[in-house]
């Protein structure tokens, strides 16, 4: 019976009662069948978030047997905490450098590799190596490279007359050095995504551009390549943004947030407060702020990216 017929049948009272009962049974079965999934979702996904949110309104520390509700006191403390603002600023600077840096270089690498005919898979593998290696292990390598005395970076820069520094120990170069490592690591991943995007551009579009009088690679990039890569670029930007917000491993291994909080970022502060100072409630409040940023990114992705950049 089609919906239309069902509606017509529903006009007579006895049928209506029967159809209401049928609909309720249908609803009940549907609810029962989805109950396990919903329960797991609350337990594993929403539950922890709610727990963190509740925790941030208490004065609980790890190991305490009791706690008090303190309303907004923790947040009050956070707003007055200079390190918190420093961490927010550093995180935003970090994200602000790593996103454009890894996108432009990743796209550049993808375009260059696409344009060569020999050794394409070799270059792809080379650029992808940092993605596959463990960043903690590679951070050790970077620590040597950035060493003031025998580091490769210092030696090469010294060749050009730039004074050697302990790049990771100086307040004004430590954060840029971490950004450099992050770009180095994200570049390969973004490049692979861009290469996939490039191969999905129909060849006939490039042919059409050529016939339409497009002479230079520059014009072809702006007319065809870049607009058709917009969906990929947005995706890459969001992924890179989320990963950059989560930066922790290089900070922990190389600088521990120093010198003088120059590399203190949000997640590292959460780690310090929660697991070094055992101030669980303060760490929770920081986590709520962190989740707020991620939530904003997600909203941006859903409402801007997914609506605006698909052509077909």
């Amino acid at each position: 019976m089609s919906t239309h017929e069902a509606v017509q049948a529903g006009e007579t009272p006895s049928f209506a009662a029967a159809s209401v009962r049928a609909r309720m049974r249908y609803q009940l079965i549907a609810t029962m069948l989805s109950a396990p999934a919903i329960a797991l979702m609350f337990l594993l996904l929403i539950g922890p978030v709610v727990a963190v949110l509740l925790l941030s309104f208490t004065d609980w520390s790890l190991g305490d047997s009791d706690f008090n509700w303190v309303d907004m006191a923790t947040y009050q403390e956070m707003v007055e905490d200079d390190i918190f603002w420093k961490a927010i600023a550093n995180t935003l600077i970090y994200v602000g450098i790593v996103i454009p840096g890894s996108i432009i270089l990743g796209l550049g690498a993808a375009l260059l590799i696409e344009s060569v005919t020999v050794g394409r898979s070799f270059w792809r593998a080379v650029y992808f190596l940092p993605v596959m290696s463990t960043l903690i292990a590679m951070a050790v390598v970077w620590e040597f490279m950035l060493n003031a005395k025998f580091g490769m970076v210092s030696q090469v820069l010294g060749f050009f007359g730039v004074e050697a520094k302990s790049w990771l120990q100086e307040p004004d170069t430590a954060l840029p050095a971490l950004c450099l490592i992050a770009i180095w690591q994200a570049l390969g991943f973004n490049m692979v995504l861009f290469m996939a995007g490039l191969t999905s551009i129909p060849r006939e579009l490039h042919n059409a551009a050529e016939v339409d009088g497009v002479r230079s690679a520059w014009d072809r990039f702006w007319l065809v390549t870049w607009p058709l890569l917009t969906p990929v670029t947005m995706f890459v930007a969001i992924i890179t943004a989320i990963r950059s917000f989560q930066v922790f491993d290089t900070v922990h291994v190389l600088t521990k947030g120093g010198p003088d909080n120059a590399t203190m970022v949000l997640v590292y502060q959460i780690y310090q407060e929660g697991f070094e100072f055992f101030r669980s409630s303060y760490a929770s409040a920081l986590t709520v702020v962190f989740l707020g940023f991620i939530f904003l990114l997600t909203l941006f992705k859903v409402f801007v990216v997914e609506r605006k950049v698909h052509y077909q």
Partner: peptide, 19 residues
């Protein structure tokens, strides 16, 4: 080069710029 030949072409897939 094609761009210098001043010949225009209609492609089977039309090859319109989607954006």
């Amino acid at each position: 080069r094609p761009s210098e030949r001043n010949i225009s072409m209609v492609f089977q897939s039309y090859a319109l710029y989607p954006h």
